[in-house]
Write a protein that binds this DNA or RNA. Structure first.
Length: 824
DNA sequence: AGCACGCCGACT
DNA sequence: GTCGGCGTGCTC
């Protein structure tokens, strides 16, 4: 009889332009389902994990489909709506669905093969015709198998493929594909009684037989099993193998014999996850303001899917979120709480865990692949009404919730919600809103300083808006003081980088056993060295930026490509030894504080001091315990930290961020400064915030001083309207990279020419960005402004196609083009 | 992403 | 010459 042959369109986690079609072996016709994972060969020898998107009986035309190698799941690994969501994201953010899948699935669920080379012929030494390198490879394979990269490292060359190929052909080695799946769900072995022996009669016969064959151990074992399984009470429950074996006189051999006689069966059962205790806890009561706001949010959800909660720092948004989460869980749905990555490693987690206990799952890059895969599988297998709340970074919008009811996006304005590189360059907040809109999920955006776009959506009634005012628990807003750096320069009283007012406040704070946080948005010691004679500046050899001096390691580092060099003894142009340092970073501030306040414990917190994951935690807890009195850091010190004894906060150079050439720089600076200021004086007393500046009269600083978000919004939205920026238009940024500056320029001009035909867009550029060369590639940027048009999707595909057309041209084919939709 | 193929400089 | 770097194109 003729059997149907099935073909599967398989989505692979790669930047492939389309899905690939594979053939399904007949014996798997029944188990090949949409949404299950399969292992497929791709190219010469690699195996990848893919997901079946569609099944068809139609053989593809023009090529012979390869067979799928294995089916990994008996049930779909994704919920039905997920691939649809992926495709939407791929289209919106101009990338392939494979790239979205790659970002969505935790690593542990993406098995792939690794080619390992194994020695086949022990007597290779006899052969005199082997080259030195071949001998070296065979020698190392004598002890253990290796991967291609192992061998490349061993030989110190890159092209090892020909050598290996030669050895395979000559029969000295062979390769094997080892499929590496990193996710191993914890399983336990459970023992059950075979149906045959469920009656007392059958059992007594069995016992007699065992006695006859002197299988004493076996009958002991069986007896104990029956006891544990509650046989006497007429029950026949399964018993954990471990529980059985931990009793004296029970040995594995006896158990094995019983299994062989088919008296009992041993089955692998997925170990119990810390089962979500379905009890949904009570929460501390809300203040009157919070309760009013909570009711307002709920009311708003009746007419809006998305609501913005605008509440200043420590106005108690978290408690409100918790109540909302609780109500969602009570209604039988699940909740997702999105936070910027960095805020996830802090106190908030312990707070939520305290409230919700085992219902909470945390999901971000700090967790192992196995743990993340476990969370994924747990959500997938959870009952529709199982109460679960996931606390996660941006990638948790991809989790397979069965019955999601609420998404909270805290610190909605945070730029880290947007993935920068690699594709998909998605914004988790926007993606959450899209995911929610298709399924009736409610989204709550929370921020003390909402992004201009979000606030605009709220004022346009597209989103609901709830204002939460008043600091929670009677904490006073900090006093903000502008410290004029020029004044200290004139009087020559600048201490290191500290102005007199900041210095004095710090002195007082330390005397009163209070703590200080200093913020400088730049790491290293000094970002710029300059020859005092000729003006020469040490630059990165691969990028067009000056090298930053790091004193601790006594090195010059490029913050763009990571290039490291030794600091020059003298100017390489004029030979003069007179080099001066301009500008300052966190390292310099740390040194200043150490010099100015001997005896005060200072700690720096930036990328350089938190390379290992644990060090971040350690610094936080040392600061919390009071072991450290002064914390000097970059952005890191601004996120999600609450400390009780911070009397003084210093922002060391407000001007740099305000002068950054970007249409969002005022908004950003305002958000950043408000956030840093919020670290001051959490309880008991009013904290002081010093903003050091060369321009104390700047309008933005005045607004920061009064914390006037409304005024900032009014100002910014007018500018955005006037100059044509979001939310009034949509932005797409195209970056072209080429090793030749002129080619990059010409290619971008060609792209402009291609795009000129679109009537609904305006083009800005091409122009070299702020840093015009990174890693030896010259950059050009093109900003596309798209008017609000219903043809957005078509415009985007036109842009993607235009990019491809440019790349197809002979002269520009090795030009790299990246498209960033809604760039930040 | 990884791997093969093909082109070209700098070594035996 | 040929080894090995590097760019380019394809993968069902």
């Amino acid at each position: 009889m003729e059997r149907t042959t099935l073909f599967a369109e398989v989505l692979l986690p790669l930047a492939l332009p389309k899905v690939l079609t594979y053939r399904i072996p007949h014996e798997w016709n029944e188990s090949a389902l949409q949404g299950v994972r399969v292992i497929v060969p791709l190219g010469k020898s690699k195996m990848y994990t893919g997901i079946i998107r569609h099944l068809s009986t139609q053989a593809p035309v023009g090529y012979n489909a390869k067979y799928i190698e294995a089916i990994l799941d008996s049930e779909p690994i994704v919920t039905a709506d997920q691939p649809v969501f992926w495709e939407w994201l791929a289209q919106y953010y101009c990338c392939s669905s494979g790239e979205v899948m790659n970002a969505a699935l935790p690593g542990g669920l993406k098995l792939s093969s690794e080619t390992r080379f194994v020695l086949a012929e022990e007597d290779w030494r006899e052969n005199a015709e082997l080259s030195e390198r071949e001998r070296e490879v065979l020698e190392s394979l004598g002890t253990k198998s290796s991967t291609v990269s192992d061998i490349a490292a061993l030989l110190g060359i890159r092209t090892v493929q020909p050598i290996l190929k030669g050895l395979v052909e000559k029969g000295y080695i062979f390769s094997e594909e080892e499929i590496r799946g990193r996710y191993k769900p914890k399983t336990e072995e459970w023992v059950t009684l075979n149906e045959m022996y469920s009656s007392s009669e059958a059992l007594s016969i069995l016992f007699k037989q065992l006695e006859k064959s002197r299988a004493r151990k076996q009958s002991d074992c069986l007896l104990l099993f029956l006891q544990l399984s509650g046989f006497d009470e007429g029950k026949n429950t399964a018993v954990r193998k471990l529980d059985l074996l931990k009793n004296d006189g029970i040995n594995p051999a006896a158990l094995k014999a019983l299994v062989e006689k088919q008296v009992i069966c041993i089955t692998q059962v997925q170990a119990d996850q810390p089962v979500a205790s379905s009890a949904i806890p009570e929460l501390p009561e809300l203040s009157e303001d919070q309760l009013t706001a909570l009711n307002a949010v709920k009311e708003s959800f009746e007419t809006h899917d998305v609501t913005l909660l605008h509440g200043i720092t420590s106005s108690g948004k978290t408690e409100l979120y918790c109540h909302l989460i609780r109500e969602t869980l009570l209604s039988g749905k699940q909740a997702l709480f999105l936070l910027p990555e960095i805020a996830l490693t802090t106190q908030l987690i312990s707070r939520l865990k305290k409230y919700f206990g085992s219902i909470v799952r945390v999901y971000h890059s700090g967790f192992s692949e196995n743990q993340r895969s476990a969370t994924w599988m747990e959500l997938l297998r959870a009952g529709d009404h199982e109460p679960i709340v996931v606390l996660g970074a941006r990638s948790s919008i991809f989790l397979p919730f069965r019955n999601l009811g609420l998404i909270i996006v805290d610190e909605e304005h945070e730029p880290s919600f947007k993935q920068h590189d690699p594709a998909p360059r998605y914004h988790a907040r926007d993606a959450a809103i899209v995911r929610a809109s298709k399924t009736g999920i409610k989204v709550l955006l929370g921020s003390a300083t909402p992004s201009i776009e979000t606030y605009w959506n709220a004022t346009q009634k597209r989103y609901g808006l709830v204002e939460l005012s008043g600091r929670f628990g009677g904490i006073a807003t900090p006093e903000i003081i502008l410290a004029d750096i020029r004044e200290d320069l004139r009087k020559k009283t600048l201490r290191g980088q500290l102005t007199t007012p900041l210095f004095e406040a710090m002195t007082e704070a330390f005397a009163e056993k209070q703590q200080v946080i200093l913020f400088q948005n730049r790491r290293g010691y000094s970002p710029l060295w300059q020859c005092n004679t000729c003006g020469w500046v040490p630059m990165c050899t691969r990028c067009d930026v000056s090298m930053t001096y790091h004193k601790a390691s006594h090195q010059l580092k490029c913050h763009y490509c990571g290039y490291v060099a030794n600091p020059p003894e003298a100017c390489t142009v004029c030979g003069n030894h007179d080099l001066k340092m301009l500008g300052f970073g966190t390292e310099k501030i740390e040194e200043d504080v150490r010099n100015l306040f001997p005896g005060v414990q200072v700690q720096r917190m930036d990328l350089d001091t938190t390379r290992q994951k644990s060090s971040y935690q350690r610094i936080i807890s040392d600061f919390e315990s009071g072991e450290i009195q002064a914390l000097v850091g970059t952005q890191m010190v601004t996120k999600g930290l609450d400390f009780d004894h911070v009397a003084v906060v210093g922002i060391l150079n407000a001007d740099r961020m305000m002068n950054y050439p970007d249409f969002r720089s005022m908004e950003r600076s305002f958000q950043l400064m408000m956030q840093v200021a919020g670290r001051a004086g959490r309880r008991q007393r009013r904290g002081k915030v010093f903003i050091q500046t060369y321009a104390p009269g700047h309008w933005l600083l005045e607004l920061v001083k009064t914390g006037d978000y409304q005024a900032l919004y009014e100002h910014e939205i007018r500018e955005r309207y006037h100059f044509g920026y979001p939310p009034f238009i949509r932005l797409i940024r195209i970056t072209l990279k080429h090793k030749d500056d002129a080619v990059a320029q010409r290619a971008s001009e060609e792209l402009v020419a291609q795009l000129q035909v679109l009537s609904s867009i305006q083009l800005l550029g091409p122009e070299p960005p702020y840093v015009p060369r990174i890693n030896n590639l010259y950059l050009r940027q093109l900003l596309i402004k798209i008017n609000r048009t219903p043809e957005l999707a078509r415009t985007k595909s036109f842009i993607v196609e235009a990019g491809r057309k440019v790349q197809r041209l002979e002269a520009y084919k090795n030009c790299r083009i990246t498209i960033d939709v809604d760039p930040l």
